[in-house]
C-alpha cells in the first residue's frame, strides 16, 4: 500500500496481480449465462466491463471470487489464475483465502447492520488481524476513501445511519482493509445519486496502480473516464461472451465488432 497515485499509462507496479481467465463458462441449471470467455485483466490497471443488461458481466465478476458458490445450481467451468498463483477455479481451492485476496464491492451498499467499527472488526478478526492493529487499519482505510473526517467521531454508531454514498465508500474501505490484490466492483455507482456517484468514482480511480480493479458499469462515460482497458460483453447464441477488449482509448475510438460499435456509440444495446 505504498504507492498512492500513479499516472494513467504507467507499467504495472510489483505486488499487484493480474487475472487471466481462460474458457470460462457459467451455468445456472440448464441456462448458460456465460460461454467461453477469455480475458486477461492487467495488474494495477482499471478494467471496465461494459455491455447491455443480462449479458453475464455480473456472473463473470462473481465467478472470479467464487461468490457463484453461494448460488444454488450454479456451475463454473474454465480456468482463472491470479498473478503467478495457481488455478482458483474448481475444487480444492481455499475459497476464503481467495476472497481475502480478491475483494468485492456490490451494486447496493451493503454494510452490516452494526457499528462502523464492527464492520471492520468482524472480517479483520476473522482473518487473524490482532485487536491492537485494527483501529490503525480502520483509520487508514477510511482515510483512503475520504470518510475518516466524516465519521471518525461516530465509529461506534450504526453504519446504517450513513448516507448511501458514505455507505458505499465504507464498503470500499472495508474491502481495502483486508489488503487485497484485486477489487471487483459490481456497478458500484448505479444505486447512488450523481454527486455521491462522482465521489465514489474518484476514489475508485485513485486505486489505480495500488490494486487491480475490475469494474462492471452501465455508464459508458464513467468507463471512459476511469478505465485503462475495457471489455465489451454481448449475447451470442443465447449466452453472454466478450466480443471485444483492449485499451479504453482504442476500443472507444475505433471499435472493431459491429455490435460493440453500435453499443459504444449509443445506438443499441
Amino acid at each position: 500500500m505504498a504507492i498512492s497515485s500513479v499516472p494513467k499509462t504507467n507499467a504495472p507496479p510489483p505486488g499487484t496481480a493480474g487475472i487471466s481467465v481462460r474458457d470460462l463458462s457459467v451455468h445456472y441449471g440448464n441456462f448458460e449465462a456465460l460461454k467461453d470467455v477469455n480475458l486477461s485483466i492487467e495488474a494495477g490497471l482499471v478494467t471496465a466491463l461494459v455491455g447491455p443488461s443480462g449479458c453475464g458481466k455480473s456472473s463473470f465478476l462473481h465467478s472470479l471470487n467464487r461468490l457463484t458458490d453461494l448460488v444454488p445450481g450454479c456451475k463454473v467451468k474454465g480456468s482463472v489464475r491470479f498473478g503467478n498463483g495457481g488455478e482458483s477455479c474448481g475444487p480444492g481451492v481455499d475459497v476464503l483465502a481467495l476472497r481475502r485476496r480478491v475483494g468485492m464491492v456490490f451494486q447496493k451498499p451493503n454494510p452490516f447492520p452494526q457499528s462502523i467499527r464492527r464492520n471492520f472488526e468482524i472480517p479483520l478478526r476473522e482473518h487473524g488481524v490482532r485487536r491492537k492493529e485494527i483501529s490503525e487499519v480502520i483509520e487508514k482505510c477510511l482515510r483512503d476513501v475520504g470518510l475518516w473526517d466524516e465519521v471518525s467521531d461516530r465509529l461506534d454508531r450504526s453504519a446504517m445511519a450513513l448516507s448511501g454514498g458514505q455507505q458505499q465508500r465504507l464498503c470500499i474501505a472495508r474491502a481495502l482493509a483486508l489488503d487485497p490484490d484485486v477489487i471487483l466492483f459490481d456497478e458500484p455507482c448505479s444505486a447512488l445519486d450523481p454527486m455521491a456517484s462522482a465521489v465514489v468514482e474518484e476514489h475508485i480511480a485513485a486505486l489505480r496502480g495500488r490494486i487491480t480493479v475490475a469494474i462492471v458499469t452501465h455508464n459508458l462515460a464513467q468507463a471512459r473516464r476511469i478505465s485503462d482497458r475495457v471489455a465489451v460483453f454481448w449475447i451470442r447464441n443465447g449466452s453472454g461472451t466478450i466480443i471485444e477488449h483492449g485499451p479504453t482509448k482504442e476500443v472507444f475510438s475505433n471499435p472493431v465488432d459491429p455490435s460493440s460499435r453500435c453499443y459504444l456509440e449509443g445506438g443499441c444495446g
Binding site: 471470487n65 451493503n110 452490516f112 452494526q114 476473522e126 474491502a175 483486508l178
Partner: peptide, 24 residues
C-alpha cells in the same frame, strides 16, 4: 445482501451466522 457481503470478505458461514446474521 448481507450474505454475499460477508462471503466477499472471506468470512466463513459460521462467522457470518454468529457475527452478522444472528445480531441482525
Amino acid at each position: 445482501d448481507l450474505r454475499p457481503a460477508a462471503g466477499a470478505l472471506g468470512l466463513t458461514r459460521a462467522t457470518t451466522l454468529w457475527q452478522i446474521l444472528l445480531p441482525a
